Simulated assay, not measured.
Amino acid sequence: MSSIQGTLAQWRDRLRRKELSPAELVNLTADAIEADRTTNAYISFDREAALRAAAAADTASPLAGIPIAVKDNINVLGQPTRCASRLLAPYASPYDATSIRLLKAAGGIPLGRTNMDEFAMGASGENSAYGVTRNPNAPDHIPGGSSSGSAAAVASATAIAALGSDTGGSIRQPAGHCGIVGLKPTYGRVSRYGLVAFASSLDQIGPMTRTVEDAAILLQAISGHDPKDSTSADEPVPDFEAALGRDVKGLKVGIPAEYFTSGNHPGISEAVQNTVKQLESLGAELVEISLPHADAVVAAYYIIACAEASSNLSRFDGVRYGKRAEDAAGLVELFSRTREEGFGPEVKRRIILGTYVLSSGYYDAYYSRA
C-alpha cells in the first residue's frame, strides 16, 4: 500500500511533469485497494471504469487525472450507490451528483465506493451492512463515522483523497480518529444534489485528505452554485489554495467558555490548549465568548436530524427503486416488509425517534423547541 503514499498536490505535480500517467496512478491505487486486508474501507471499486476515465484525463486540469474515493451515499453515474444498506443493494445510479460532475470536470477520477455507517447514521463505522470499517492506525479501534471508509482509505494510503458527507460530525470525527484532515464546508458552499439525504438542513459534502493543502484543492474543485440545489449559495468561490500560508496575526479567534469543561478528556483539553497557545504566539487575538445553548446542542441535533431522516427515508418503500420484499400481500405489507428487511437497527431507531417527535401531540414539545 506504500505505492500511493504522498499528497494530492504531490501526485498532481508528478502527473503534470509526466513522470507517470493517470492510468498508471489508477492502477497503483486499485492495486493498493486489492492488497488491503485490514480496513474494509471500500465496499466496491471499478478499475476498468476508472481506466476509461483516465484515458481522457487532462493532466493540466486542477486535479490532473487523480483518482478520488467517494463515500457510498454520493451518486456516481453507472455505479452502485447503496449507502451501505441492504435496502439499496440492487441500485445503480443513473446520474452524477453535482459534486461528482464538478470533480470530473476538474480532472478527478471517481474510484471506489467507500464504506460508511448505513445511510450516514452512526459515529463508529460499525453500522454498515457490508461489515465494520477498521482504523488503519489501530485495527482494534473504531475509525469514527459515518464517513468511516473515506477516512480509513486516506489514512491507509488506499486513496489519495476522498469525498465524505457530514451531518453532525461525519467528516470531522472520523478524520480526527484516523489522523487526517476533514472539512465540513459552510452550508450551501457545495451542492447537495445527488447526495442521498439524511437530514437536509444539515448535510454537506466535503473533502477528506492528508493535508490542509489537499483539502483546499479538492474543495475548490467541488464548490459552486448549483440551480439543482435550492439551498446552494449563489456566492463566488474563493481561491482556497492561494489563501494558504497567510499570517494569522490580527485574526480574531473565539474561545467558547462552555467547551472547556471538566467533562473533556484531559488529553483533548491539553491538545486544544496547546493549539490556542500556538495561535496566540503567532499573533492571533483570542476572545473569550459564550455559547449559552451549548448544553442543548446534541439533544437539538438528534431531534432535528431524526425528524428529517424520518421524512427523507420514507421514499424507500420497495416501489420505485432498491430492494422489494417478495410475495407481499398488498401495498401495506410491501412497504413494511421491505423496510423491515432492508434497514439496519440504527436506521430503524432513528426513523422511529424522528416519527415520534413529528407526531401529533409531540411536534410542539420536541421538534418546534429543537
Score class of each variant (00 low, 15 high):
L286D: 04
E34N: 13
S336H: 14
K323V: 10
Y42H: 15
A53D: 12
L25P: 04
Q220P: 04
D46W: 12
A257D: 10
L77Y: 10
R86Q: 05
P67N: 06
S44G: 12
L334T: 12
R324N: 08
A215E: 01
V332G: 08
R324C: 09
Q204A: 03
A305M: 13
F316M: 06
A155V: 00
Y363D: 14
L8T: 02
S156E: 05
A221N: 02
E235W: 06
S368I: 14
A92H: 15
G179D: 08
D117P: 11
G149P: 10
A56M: 10
L279S: 10
A157M: 14
G65P: 02
I205D: 00
A199Q: 07
E308W: 03
V196L: 15
M1I: 14
V190M: 07
E340S: 15
K249E: 11
S165F: 00
S314A: 15
V190K: 04
G108D: 05
D72W: 07
Q220T: 06
R189H: 05
I171T: 04
A329S: 05
Y362L: 06
P67T: 02
K18Y: 05
K348G: 13
S336P: 07
T7K: 06
I74H: 02
E241A: 15
N312K: 13
A105I: 09
F119A: 00
G164P: 00
L111W: 05
G245C: 12
G149N: 07
A309L: 08
R246H: 11
G263A: 14
E241G: 14
T211D: 11
I160S: 07
R86T: 08
G224E: 07
S269V: 13
W11P: 03
A50M: 04
N137V: 15
S191V: 01
A161F: 03
P80K: 04
L218N: 11
L87Y: 01
V347I: 15
A9L: 09
A329M: 01
L202I: 00
K277Y: 06
K104R: 15
T209K: 11
R315K: 12
A138S: 15
V248K: 05
P292S: 02
R315E: 04
